[in-house]
């Protein structure tokens, strides 16, 4: 069994989330965000077994939060013991920015469906309600938080922050040990260029998790929740403090 992995060497320091939430609550401009921060953040020394998580996945029109928009959001609340499908949420959203033909093909979502869909601002209250007091679990943290941050800034002129665990980064840590040969770098480069959903499926396969259809925000959220449970079962323990893996 691989030994537990130390905290990542990520360039940015991880904030003290409860303290940051306290500060943000004080400076929040809108009641929506103030209430969100008022519900607090999990303390860093909380063991994983006590943490309430929410797996979160966004389907977007592209990878750049400045140029692309959000098409759909799926989320599933869970703990290490149980993934609670009954609390799942899924929203189809009208993106601010145009949907390319390529992303239509990927997401299987049509223009018509999107025309009828609400704007993020209409569901933001529900979304924040589902995130409040929980740690978000995403597969590749370069998407969900930046896109939501940007969307909230645009619509409310307010700042959105929340703690995130990145299952892709956890997978990457495991393979860091043999990252130095040219061949591995070449292979890693190949993997790195693959769409997120494919990488998610490959990670899941390592834990003998079933293959799911890709590119549906709710399915991907569920897939991430299961992957995280598997990662903890193999690489960590319920006693590991959340501060070792969150960002």
């Amino acid at each position: 069994m691989p030994s537990p992995i130390r905290s990542s060497s990520s360039s940015k320091a991880v904030p003290d989330w409860p303290a940051l939430f306290g500060q943000l609550e004080a400076v929040a401009r809108t009641p929506l965000l103030r209430q969100f921060y008022a519900r607090g953040a999990v303390a860093g020394d909380t063991p994983l077994s006590q943490v309430r998580f929410v797996a979160l996945d966004l389907e977007t029109t592209g990878m750049n939060p400045d140029r692309n928009g959000i098409v759909s959001i799926g989320l599933v609340p869970f703990t290490l013991n149980r993934i609670q499908c009954a609390g799942s949420r899924y929203w189809l959203l009208k993106p601010r920015r145009a949907l390319s033909a390529a992303s239509i093909a990927i997401h299987g979502i049509t223009h018509e469906a999107l025309q009828r869909a609400p704007d993020l601002s209409e569901i933001l209250g529900d979304l924040l309600d589902a995130l409040a007091g929980r740690v978000a679990v995403v597969h590749y943290r370069g998407v969900e938080r930046p896109f939501l941050r940007r969307a909230v800034r645009e619509r409310l002129g307010d700042r959105l922050e929340f703690p995130v665990v990145d299952t892709m980064e956890i997978e990457a840590r495991i393979h860091r040990g043999w990252k130095n040969t040219p061949l591995v770098r070449f292979l890693a480069g190949l993997v790195g260029r693959q769409p997120k959903s494919i990488r998610l499926a490959q990670s899941r396969d390592r834990y003998h998790l079933p293959l799911y259809g890709a590119h549906h925000a709710l399915t991907d959220a569920l897939a991430s929740a299961e992957l995280f449970q598997a990662q903890v079962a193999w690489r960590f323990s319920g006693d590991t403090p959340i501060s070792e893996i969150w960002h």
Binding site: F78, I83, C85, A86, A233, W234
Partner: peptide, 14 residues
């Protein structure tokens, strides 16, 4: 049923 299911992963041997 699918909407109400709860899920958990169990490592081999647990």
């Amino acid at each position: 049923i699918a909407r109400q299911v709860e899920i958990a992963y169990f490592r081999a041997g647990t």
